[in-house]
Amino acid sequence: MSSTTEQEPEHGDVLVAQVEEQLRAPAWTRLLTGSSTFIGLILVGLIVVFSILSYTNFVSASNARNVATDAAVLLVVAVGMTFVIVTAGIDLSVGSVLVFAGVVAARAMHAVGGNSWGTIIVGLLVALGCGLGWGVINGFLISKAKVPALIVTLGTFGMALGFALLITGGVDERSVPFKLVDTIGTGRVGNQVPYLVIIAFAVAAVFAVLLHATRFGRYTFAIGSNEEAARRAGIRVDRHLIKVYALMGMLSGLAGFLSLARFSTTTIGGHSTDNLQAIAAVVIGGTSLFGGVGTLLGTIFGVFIPAVLQNGFVIVGVQPFWQQVAVGAVLILAVYLDQLRRRSEYQR
């Protein structure tokens, strides 16, 4: 083949590429669907709007503290949910696992007795262990028994709550050590930043590194992107999925412990929609339900958007019921943008 004829198809390719470029979704949709920047901008926009509407009430250390404290427990759950959804999975059991872990941890601390750090650490380990146990069950059934994640975790959602009710007879457990409530539950570092908030953000930071900088994170994305390809590349997919659901369970357990510390009771009836809230936060944060795409930073934004809306509506005197409407709309918008991205990428 002469050099001139070899050149021609390449020119052709460049031309095709240019045409494709023009046929693709306009630039703004790519910016919007590209990363967590867009959702971060929405959060900033909300904060700006509420600040303008009610500067004195909204922009204060105590209000920021309230919002962050309310969001802290959900953030811990949503961090785990990010991993699960990145694998193209789902976990509906989180709220019940949270309650179960809280109940058993409260019982354990009661049994050990006293008001020492030793007792508290026992409670923490029990909560983490309970969560881990449910997570391993979920992961095993999903990866080995091949039961769809939606069904497995719907099942354990009912089972974990059922066991919690059986253990307590349906009555909230209130014997939580004072020291736990005074420090982790309601205490603040430097009298400003609540321990709960610091813990939640520390968890988010550690897991952000795990997701985005390590091999564990890379395999999580690879499995969500193409499970069969991951398997053929030698990744032990089943084992990895069990680990991911185990992590999710452990974080639910931690959330249960934090919730116990915060409310000094097991709040058995208060977590039936935690799963949907966590899923909404993760999806609003730009993680794709189809797997393989997502960021932990986005999830943080996704947790705070509903929290800021709720708080802002109360402050500016809008009926807080509007929050649910607004969050629902944001959720649908987020998934629509994900679909735009997928369409612009896969159409070719």
Partner: peptide, 23 residues
């Protein structure tokens, strides 16, 4: 093997695919 269905993780970048399982 180059599989007929390619077996790439489409959401990852080319280098990540090249090194998948051998990071």
């Amino acid at each position: 093997t180059v599989y007929q269905d390619l077996a790439l993780a489409a959401e990852l970048d080319p280098a990540a695919n090249l090194y998948l399982g051998r990071e």
